[in-house]
Design a protein around this nucleic acid. Structure first.
Length: 385
RNA sequence: CGCGACUAGUGGAUG
């Protein structure tokens, strides 16, 4: 038995997980005792690799051979499936918990409820909450936060508020995440005043806002164009020793861009750099998009190249924005130049990009070139719509 | 035997 244990571990450690699984099957089919230690180890590895399907299949196999079921393993697998938006499979894992003689924990419920909420099936989420209430597993702060978030995402703010109250009435104490969730819901539906009230309530109740809370508020304020208060919030967070992160800056940059205030956006970018905060793909896309919208294509292209130099490959949509920017100025030639850049970056231009160029050519009356482009598309297997 | 390990909230994006 020790031998099989060692053998399976060796396969696992060498990255030959499928051989390890085979090894397990051989041991089992030959009637030897199943090496639980190495099975557990392999299971861990499989769970950590991003293929919950394989991990789940293996888990079922070893459970069948007597491996002791463990609620954490089930929960983690459910979570992985949910992350892949595969709630159906998560539900199967959930159902298996009871079949294997365990009881779903509050985490099991919360994970599944979240999966359903993210899939737009709030009803099932609430049904599970009732199941919890009937089975000694009381909904906790996570349960409520998940459901409040689900309601918020569907703009059902009144119900979200009610659920928040229900939670408090039941003696549960909302934490920073709960408050932030509710604040975000209010912001996203334009109720920024309400959001600020919740924020005040949060402070009154002694719940400490964190970086995410502030970013959420800043986003809400930017969306209604209230940059004065947005900046005030930034100052407030600094006073509390919270350093603005890339999301804070990107939120501001995007907010300024959407307002058409490119100077402030670029100024924020400067501050960001001087503070040693890294720009990521989202930051750059916000800038490129903003510059294009304002017709500053050359600057957009510079930013695009800066992005490439920073080691971040822009995606097709980002290149296409710049191509479109040139085309709108009647400069189709430069549009095609960017197309080349796109292709050099290892991207494949698809329908939308070609349509942008096609549009540019047609608007310029370059029908012959447009026809050639159409032929090129057909040759490349890009189906025109 | 004990302990640990699992769940919720924030930014951009093309015709």
């Amino acid at each position: 038995n020790l031998v099989f244990d060692a053998l399976m571990n060796a396969y696992t450690d060498s990255g030959f997980v499928s051989d390890a699984v085979q090894c397990f099957r051989l041991v089992k089919s030959n009637g030897f005792r199943v090496p639980f230690h190495s099975c557990g180890y392999l299971l861990d590895i499989l769970i950590k690799s991003n293929s919950p399907v394989i991990a789940w299949a293996f888990y079922l196999e070893i459970l069948d051979s007597g491996f002791p079921p463990n609620i954490y393993a089930f929960n983690i697998l459910m979570h992985k499936f949910c992350k892949e938006r595969n709630v159906q499979e998560a539900q199967k894992v959930f159902d298996e918990i009871s079949k294997r003689g365990l009881h779903p924990s509050v985490v099991s419920f919360n994970t599944l409820i979240n999966g359903y909420c993210k899939n737009g099936n709030l009803n099932e989420g609430f049904r599970l909450k009732r199941v919890m209430e009937n089975t000694q597993v009381s909904p906790d702060v996570f349960t409520y936060s998940v459901l409040i978030n689900g309601l918020c995402r569907e703009s059902r703010i009144g119900e979200a508020n009610k659920l928040f109250d229900e939670m408090c009435e039941r003696g549960l104490v909302p934490n920073d995440v709960t408050f932030t969730t509710l604040i975000d819901g209010h912001c996203k539906t334009g109720r920024v005043t309400g959001a600020m009230e919740i924020y005040q309530k949060m402070l009154t109740k002694g719940v400490k806002p964190d970086l995410i809370t502030y970013n959420t508020l800043i986003n809400g304020l930017c969306r209604i164009g209230d940059f004065v208060r947005a900046r005030n919030i930034v100052d407030e967070m600094k006073k509390k020793n919270l350093k603005p992160d890339k999301i804070t800056y990107t939120t501001l940059i995007d907010g300024f861009c959407k307002e058409g205030d490119l100077e402030s956006a670029l100024e924020s970018k400067k501050v960001m750099i001087s503070q040693g905060v890294e720009l990521d793909d989202v930051t750059y896309t916000a800038l490129v998009s903003g510059l294009c919208r304002e017709g500053r294509v050359e600057d957009a292209e510079k930013t695009l190249m800066e992005m490439v130099r920073a080691g971040i490959e822009p995606d097709e949509a980002t290149y296409t924005m710049v191509i479109d920017g040139f085309c709108r100025k009647g400069d189709v030639k430069n549009g095609f130049r960017i197309l080349k850049e796109l292709q050099n970056g290892g991207n494949v231009a698809s329908l939308v990009t070609y349509n942008v160029l096609m549009n540019g050519l047609c608007k310029q009356g370059q029908m012959k070139n447009a026809k050639m482009l159409l032929d090129a598309m057909l040759n490349l297997g890009v189906v025109p719509d």
